[in-house]
């Protein structure tokens, strides 16, 4: 593991401080095979409460497979996945997932779609608050078909956050958006993470995005973790800075070295 410090090591790091309600995630010896195709092999990973972790790697290297295991949508062939010490499948609304597509119910209003994230029945105040958070307070009664792609993805984010989860798992949530909307959404997710303090695990094919958002970036390949990069910082991200560009370059090298 290599660590790239943007700050002197002895300065206290904010991610650790704000992690009081984030979930901790632990994978031990996780393998997943599809018939003869061994996608993940003996993978170990610990994600600290409140950490923002990004997973990058070549297409088909098993990023989505890994994320589905963490989200409890799939079970490992061997090994264990735990969220706060319990099996991921029992995490309930402590764990929320955001997909590449918004996956809103077309026949439900925006507000009703957000309410899907609430397990204990509809709560108009919580829904309104979540919509406020993603800056769509006036769209509550719209149909999803009446929104733009970026707005739909923001509704999906509101749905994921309305239950105040401890872990947010994101599989290329911004992949289908245009570059400008993507930047806006990145800032939104980053803000949300800073405010709410959940643990975030993001799969992305955009290394710049991973570096801009994360506390740690791991490169997945050959069934395991090829390299890890800690990004320590305080204050707002300075996009396009020389340090970030250097980290980006190293991560890209690690991906292509595989």
């Amino acid at each position: 593991m290599q660590a790239v410090n943007l700050l002197p090591r002895d300065i206290e790091v904010p991610p650790m401080l704000r992690g009081n309600q984030g979930a901790s995630v632990r994978l031990s010896g996780v393998s997943r095979s599809f018939d003869a195709n061994r996608v993940l092999a003996g993978l170990d990973l610990h994600v600290r409460p409140g950490e923002f972790l990004s997973i990058v790697g070549k297409s088909g290297c098993g990023k989505s497979t890994l994320l589905r295991l963490i989200a409890g949508l799939d079970k490992p062939t061997t090994g264990t996945v735990t969220v706060d010490g319990k099996p991921a499948t029992q995490a309930g609304d402590r764990l929320r997932i955001m997909f590449q597509e918004p996956r809103l119910l077309p026949w439900a209003s925006v507000a009703d779609n957000v309410a899907i994230g609430l397990r204990n029945g509809p709560d108009p105040d919580a829904v309104a608050e979540a919509l406020e958070l993603v800056q769509l307070p006036d769209k509550a009664s719209f149909w999803p078909a009446q929104l733009s792609g970026g707005q739909r993805q923001r509704v999906a984010l509101a749905r994921a956050l309305v239950s105040h989860p401890g872990l947010l798992v994101l599989d290329e949530p911004l992949g289908a958006l245009d570059a400008l909307t993507r930047l806006t959404m990145q800032n939104l997710i980053r803000d949300m993470h800073a405010k709410a303090g959940f643990t975030a695990i993001l799969v992305t094919h955009d290394v710049a995005e991973a570096v801009a958002l994360s506390d740690r970036v791991i490169v997945l390949g050959q069934g395991g973790i090829l390299s890890q990069t800690e990004i320590l910082r305080v204050g707002p991200v300075t996009r396009g800075s020389a340090e970030l560009a250097a980290i980006e370059g190293e991560i890209l090298d690690a991906i292509f070295a595989a």
Partner: peptide, 12 residues
């Protein structure tokens, strides 16, 4: 099927 997966993931 993506909506069904979403529903499952959201505990329906």
């Amino acid at each position: 099927s993506q909506l069904i997966e979403m529903g499952r993931a959201y505990g329906m």
